[in-house]
Computed example of a mutant assay.
Amino acid sequence: DRRDPEMERSQERNGGEGVAGREPGGEGLRLRREIGLWSAVSLMAGCMIGSGVFMSPQGVLVYMGSPGASLMVWAGCGLLAMMGALCYAELSALVPKSGGEYAYILQIFGSLPAFLVIYTFVLLVRPAAIAAVSLSFAEYAVTPFYPGCSSMPQAVLKGVAASCILLLTLVNCWSSRLATMLVNVCAVAKVFSLLVIVVGGAVVLGQGRGHTETFLLAFHNTTQQAGRIGMAFYQGMWSFDGWNNVNYVVEELKNPKNLVWAVMIAIPLVTSLYLLVNISYLLVLSPNEILSSDAMAVSWGNQVLGAWAWLVPLAVVLSTFGSANGMFFGGSRVCYVAAREGHMVRDGVWAGQGGGGCRRAKLSPA
């Protein structure tokens, strides 16, 4: 494996992180394999656990009409996410490149569809997702400073969201190892927050204060309209979004087989937590409270945690911050792969310019 001397010196100056060297043949760069199994699990689970399960999971209940059917929808969404992730894992075995669906479309359908996909991803899909998550982060981060206000100043919200985006940009540009560490820390915080909600519901049930009557007629008033069932699945699948993020960084996995293990660990874990958290909500909150709440986790915290209810907004802040970081981490690798394939620009010129079309890009360490 040939190494470029200038590249090696650059690595030493930057602490040896990020870029490992040029690919065989001197074309393009390859990244270090620094992501272990638990980092892959943290990336997948951390991207899935966002603000959805904390803020408005009652959407599934509203469309399904009964708690039993809503829990079945949550389980079905987990099953669909598992099937999709396993299909992606098989694609990753056939096309062992970072970039996720971009790499697969490029390999199967060719350059033009892949080019259209990457620019839709870069200009529309990923920026919109990061902006939405960052605004959720800003809303919960700012709320403690405006007690009693029903609506926050938009300038403040947008300023905090922009600061979140800028901070995560700097972190991901500075060090991939630091970004991975942040993914791991936020993922642990998210899982711990969900466990607090699960244990709190169990304590309420043990004290005999739970709304157990909700489960006596668990499937009463279940809808049979296909449109409402489809909307319920749409609401649930939003909370599972992010199951494909590890496919964006396949080339950085220490062991490519860890992708399958990450899928088998992360998705059942997240599905189980979502089911238990929804059961806790149903035990603590009455049907009217569930339907009228804009943030079920906050309503739950006010009733169960008392003076410690501030932990719930903090959990949402950490959750949204970690999700946005995971989007940056995975999305940057898609741009890297696209530039390597000649579909992105570098230093103001096309990466593939001068070599007869879509040749591989010779990227600089910067």
Rank of each mutant, 00 (worst) to 15 (best):
A361K: 03
G52W: 00
A232V: 07
S10E: 15
Y234H: 03
F145M: 09
R13C: 10
F115M: 12
S150L: 10
I290V: 12
V249C: 13
Y248N: 14
S111Q: 13
A129G: 11
A187L: 00
K190V: 02
A155Q: 11
Q58S: 10
G236T: 10
T271R: 00
V263L: 03
V249H: 02
A324E: 06
R3M: 15
I35Y: 07
P256H: 12
T169R: 08
A20K: 13
F109R: 13
E6R: 09
G236V: 01
I118W: 05
V277I: 03
G352P: 08
S92C: 08
G100W: 02
S239D: 03
N255G: 02
G52C: 00
G200T: 06
A179S: 15
P96H: 12
G227W: 12
G210A: 15
G230R: 05
Y146E: 09
G201F: 02
A339F: 09
G76A: 05
V312N: 03
W300V: 02
I108Y: 12
G16Q: 08
M237V: 02
G159P: 04
V317H: 12
A266T: 06
L273M: 10
L116H: 11
E101I: 05
P287I: 11
L116N: 11
F321C: 07
L91S: 02
R126L: 08
T214W: 01
L71F: 02
L80A: 10
C87M: 13
I279R: 04
D241A: 07
T143I: 01
M181R: 09
L216A: 15
R2M: 10
C358T: 05
M264D: 06
G208R: 15
G206V: 05
C87S: 15
T223C: 05
A138E: 06
L166C: 01
T222N: 08
G50T: 04
V160I: 15
L79S: 08
F121K: 03
V334F: 00
L135W: 02
Q107F: 11
A202D: 00
V198Y: 01
V95Q: 12
N258Y: 08
V156L: 03
S150T: 08
L285F: 07
M237C: 02
A232W: 01
M264A: 10
R228K: 14
V171H: 01
A40K: 04
S163L: 14
G28A: 10
N247A: 14
I49W: 04
A266P: 01
G36A: 04
A324Q: 07
M296F: 06
P153E: 15
V312K: 01
G301E: 02
G65L: 00
Y88H: 04
V249I: 15
E90D: 15
L112M: 14
L61D: 04
K158M: 07
A40M: 02
P153R: 11
G322A: 03
R30V: 12
L37Y: 06
L363C: 05
D4G: 08
G206T: 13
V160R: 07
L311V: 14
C173M: 14
G326R: 00
K362Q: 14
P113F: 12
R126N: 10
D1E: 12
M64W: 01
E139S: 10
G65V: 04
N184M: 09
A89G: 11
L124K: 06
A266V: 01
P24I: 13
K257E: 04
